[in-house]
């Protein structure tokens, strides 16, 4: 499993830390708001997996594309999605990114190259191939990254999309966040391989497994895969080994149902924020500066979302046809 080397500048790594903290605090806030009944619909938080979101998106340009999943807040934020409009969407406000019709599982901010969270597991991968195809047909050097989980790597959509991207040399990076469980089903039960990245061999594409709790390792692998795609050499598959510290959704506990306390504590000790703080040898003062800046963003998002109106009834019948 690839771990990071230390070629990254402190500044770059500090930015990734900030992104991870922004994701962490956004999702903690969303979870709190859910618990007091202020979030409409379900929420799947990615707390614990922030290094994957931040590391991959740090390797992208603003005009590159991402597509994500039902557990997509982190990828959305890392790609630059606006927090106020995102929180408003979760809270069922008409100022939300999807005008309150998509909710947490369909967050999109196309103006930022975010082509959507897609809640049908696997469905985003063929669509990413199509966005890659559009870039190729237009002769652009943009890249599409698609995030998915260990569970989705068993879906036909993954294999069909990998094959299409491989035969047509499409500029797509497949990033598998292997958080070990598809809801309650362990990857070691459902998946034929230990390292999902070896599945790239079936498509004659590069594959690499990285420590998904180490943002620098994720960034370095992503930078290489993105450059490969940008040069017109086709897809890559990166697997980040990671863990969600929360349950699949609010319906299951952090541990005790299908994960042991020992396993959970083992991963919790490798919290990507703590790993990064150690790499940066961060002082208490530096940590506080990051925390204060993020809190201000969160506060602004909450104020925007709380003060935004709910949709008029007419919104239910809008946006169906162009």
């Amino acid at each position: 499993m690839a771990r990071s080397t230390s070629r990254l500048s402190r500044k770059r790594l500090g930015e990734m830390y900030r992104t991870m903290l922004r994701i962490r605090r956004f999702e903690e806030t969303a979870d709190d708001l859910y618990m007091v009944g202020k979030v409409v619909g379900g929420v799947h938080v990615s707390i614990g997996q922030e290094a994957c979101s931040a590391g991959v998106c740090a390797a992208l340009r603003e005009d590159d594309a991402v597509l994500t999943t039902h557990r997509g807040h982190g990828h959305s934020i890392a790609k630059g999605t606006r927090l106020p409009e995102m929180l408003a969407e979760l809270m069922g406000k008409v100022t939300g990114l999807c005008r309150s019709k998509g909710g947490s599982m369909h967050i999109a901010d196309v103006s930022k190259g975010h082509y959507g969270a897609h809640s049908i597991v696997g469905a985003n991968m063929p669509m990413a191939a199509g966005i890659g195809l559009a870039y190729q047909l237009e002769g652009k050097d943009q890249v599409a990254v698609v995030f998915f989980g260990d569970g989705a790597s068993n879906n036909g959509a993954f294999h069909e999309a990998m094959n299409l991207c491989a035969i047509w040399k499409l500029p797509v990076v497949f990033f598998c966040e292997n958080n070990q469980y598809a809801v309650s089903v362990p990857a070691e039960y459902s998946t034929s391989v230990d390292d999902i990245s070896v599945r790239s061999k079936g498509y004659d594409a590069p594959g690499l497994t990285v420590d998904g709790m180490d943002v620098a390792a994720v960034y370095e692998a992503s930078r290489e895969a993105v450059a490969h795609a940008r040069r017109g050499l086709g897809p890559s598959l990166i697997e980040g080994k990671t863990y969600r510290f929360f349950g699949h959704s609010r319906g299951d506990p952090h541990y005790g149902m299908y994960r042991t306390k020992e396993e959970w504590e083992g991963w919790k000790g490798r919290d990507p924020l703590i790993v990064c703080e150690k790499m940066l040898k961060m002082t208490a003062k530096q940590k506080k500066a990051h925390a204060d800046a993020v809190e201000a963003e969160i506060k602004e998002a909450i104020e925007f979302a709380e003060s935004s109106p709910e949709p008029e009834e007419s919104v239910a019948l809008e946006d169906i046809f162009a």
């Binding site: 990114l97 005008r99 309150s100 019709k101 196309v110 082509y115 946006d319």
Partner: peptide, 8 residues
């Protein structure tokens, strides 16, 4: 189109 609030 509907799900994304008219963004696409």
């Amino acid at each position: 189109r509907y799900m994304l609030g008219g963004q696409v």
